[in-house]
Structures are given as C-alpha cells and as structure tokens.
Design a protein around this nucleic acid. Structure first.
Lengths: 204, 204
DNA sequence: GTCTATATCATGATAGAC
DNA sequence: GTCTATCATGATATAGAC
C-alpha cells in the first residue's frame, strides 16, 4: 500500500510537472494531468486537495531545481574568470536538459510573483554575496570595474533568454531545423564566456 | 453613430490590451475586459465575435509595435558601432514605456507560437539582412569576427531579459524600491553599449 | 449599438460505492 | 486507494428587447 501510494504520488507529480511547465497554471487542466498520470481526476484531489496546492508543490520543486546551488561555484578559491566559466557551464547543462523552465518561470512570475518570493525567503537565498565576490575580483584587478549587478544580469540574460524565446529562434533563424538549433545552443556557453571575458578583461 | 462606434471599439481595444498583456490569453476574463472598458460582456461579442478573435486583434497590434522598424536603423550609412548604439537606445525607449510586453510575448509565444509565425510571414520580417550587415562590418574590420547570430542574440537578451523577470529583480535586488529599479533600468542602455563594444572592439 | 437575461458548456471539486 | 457519477460554479457565447 505504501508502495502503491508512493508510486501513484510520483506519477501524479511527474504528470503535473509536465502539464504545468508546458501550459502554466492558467492553461493546465486537471483532466489532462489525470490522463497523463493514467488515473482519474478524483484521485488527484485525493492526493492534493486542490489544483492550487498541486501547482504549488510542482512550482517549489521546479524553483528548487532551477535556482540551484550553482552559487557555491562563485565561492570557490580560484580566479574569477575560472569560476565564471564553471558557473556558465553548470547553468547551461541545467538549461539544456530542461529547456522549458525559463518560459514557465517567466510566465508564472508575471502572473503571481508571491509564490516565488515565499520560496526565496524560505530558502534564504540572497544574491549579495555574489555581488561581493565580483567586487573583490575587481578590487584585485582581475576584471574591469563595473556595476556588478549589471554584470550578473548580463550573464544570466545571455544564458537564459534564448531558451525563453526558443520558438522564435526555431522559426526565424533555424527554419524549424532542430539539429541546427541544438548545435547553436550547445556552442553558446563557450561563446558567452568569450564574449564576457573579452569585455571585462583588463587590457595589457 | 460612426463616432460612437469608433469610440467604443477603441475603449474595448484599450481595455483588452491592458487585461491581455497582464493576464495572458488563458488568465484573461471577458468580464474583466468589459468592466475595464465600462461596457458589458455582450457588447464585446458584438464587436469581436469571440475571445480568440479579440485576442488576435490585440496580439497583432502588440507584435506590430514590439517588432518594429528599428531594423531600418541597422541599414543606415554609418559605422556599425554607431548604428548598434542607436538600435539599443530605440529598443530601450520602447521597453521602458511598455515594460510588460516581454513577459506577455514570452508567455503567448510558449503557449501557441503559430499566431506569431503567421504575423512574421505576413509582414515578411526576415533577420537575414541584419546578419549580413554585421558580417560586412566584420569584413571591414570594424568589429571582431564572431557568429553574427550569437552577437544579435546577446544584445537582444541583455536588453529584453531584465524586463521579462522584472518582479524578481524588484524583489531580490531592489527590495521593492521602484525608484532604484527604474534608475537601474535607465542606465542599462549605456551599460550594454559599453559592454558589447568592449567585447567586440578590435584591439589596437 | 447597447442592454438584460439566458443558454451552453467546461472545469474544479466532492460524494459515495468498492 | 481508486473508481464512477454528480455537483456547483464560472466562463464564453447568444437571444431578444429597446
């Protein structure tokens, strides 16, 4: 029974994640989640009392996954450029295996940001130490001086944005050639690293 | 009567744009649009036969507005860096006056991209000439050689992404200080220009 | 053109048998 | 725990009076 329950709950969570990530809270239907999980609607409400509770369960898992411990890379004891490169690589690995997360998070963020705020508060995530690390690298003369907030946002933007507008890129640039787009996205980590480093490097 | 009709249709379109942009197709309610326009639901259906038709009318106007003639800036007869700067300035002016468009477009793009594809086809928009212009600038030695597709996406990403994740920035970095965030976004055009130029400039 | 009233339908949620 | 059947609500859409 325990076994059965865990199994069903897992099936529901997987199905719900699939549907919610692609359709969003507003667009998702409990019927579709039930179908995807191979059960009926009533059982959904038995495990999770309401659509909102089910959504919250999924959303927190997704956020936990997408706002990850990459931050610890920033704290490593190497030069800043090395840490930046490792961060971009790690972030891209996540994005390439979960390309729909950016669109989903942006959608829900603009619908109702309160859920995300609660999670940020709960996990105590704070970007200040990242900004501190960047400033220290500037103090040490490893990179050019600039507002570290802009630097962080520039890097995250170049990593995440292409995934958020994937369908446009697919249509407008790659004419529905999935292989071409995958190859393009796969080479972006190196491109971004070079682009950023060329910009912030101290010229000799 | 003509006057009356135009006036009402305009009120509907304004109300619908407001509601659709903030809530999206799935989240918007015809009742809310009617309230916002100061009329009743039945009149909405008199002017636009269905919610979908009303949405399409709004969506095409928004796309027409957000995928604008900035492209002609790229064709001007000046050096590439100047044109790039003018493009970023023009694009940011649009974004600052319509900060919710990126979130809206990303949401609808991931819900159903077919509408956007039809519009792109209808207006015959094609990014190839932009890529050509960039390649010519590289041939002339104005900027470093790199894949022009990556360069375009880098620039657009850094411009648009912060608006798409506005609520996070607001909460995580600016602690709900709207003035601070506005000031930050206002200085981004210059920051991005410098960031890009420092990266692609030919070193002497 | 604009309104009130209503039809129609889809969806989230519950009741109750097994 | 899982199912079938059903409720209750809210949404789009239409009918028809003015």
């Amino acid at each position: 029974m325990e076994q059965k329950k865990d199994n069903t709950e897992e099936k529901i969570l997987n199905a719900a994640r699939e549907v919610f990530v692609h359709k969003g809270m507003d667009g998702a239907r409990m019927q579709e989640i039930a179908n995807e999980a191979g059960i009926n609607k009533a059982l959904l409400h038995y495990y999770f009392r309401s659509k909102e509770k089910l959504f919250d369960a999924i959303f927190s898992k997704v956020i936990e996954f997408a706002f990850p411990g990459f931050a610890n890379i920033i704290s490593e004891e190497t030069d800043f450029v090395t840490r930046l490169g490792k961060f971009i690589d790690a972030y891209f690995e996540m994005l390439l295996t979960h390309p729909f997360l950016p669109g989903f998070i942006i959608k829900e963020l603009n619908r109702d940001p309160s859920g995300l705020f609660k999670l940020i508060a709960k996990y105590g995530f704070n970007p200040d130490f990242v900004l501190k690390e960047i400033e220290q690298a500037m103090d040490r003369g490893e990179i050019k001086r600039m507002d570290p907030r802009h630097l962080v946002i520039n890097v995250i933007s170049m990593c995440v944005f292409p995934f958020a507008v994937r369908p446009i890129l697919n249509y407008l640039i790659f004419k529905d050639d999935q292989m071409a787009m995958s190859a393009f996205l796969g080479e972006r980590p190196e491109v971004i690293k070079k682009f950023v480093i060329d910009s912030v490097a101290i010229k000799q």
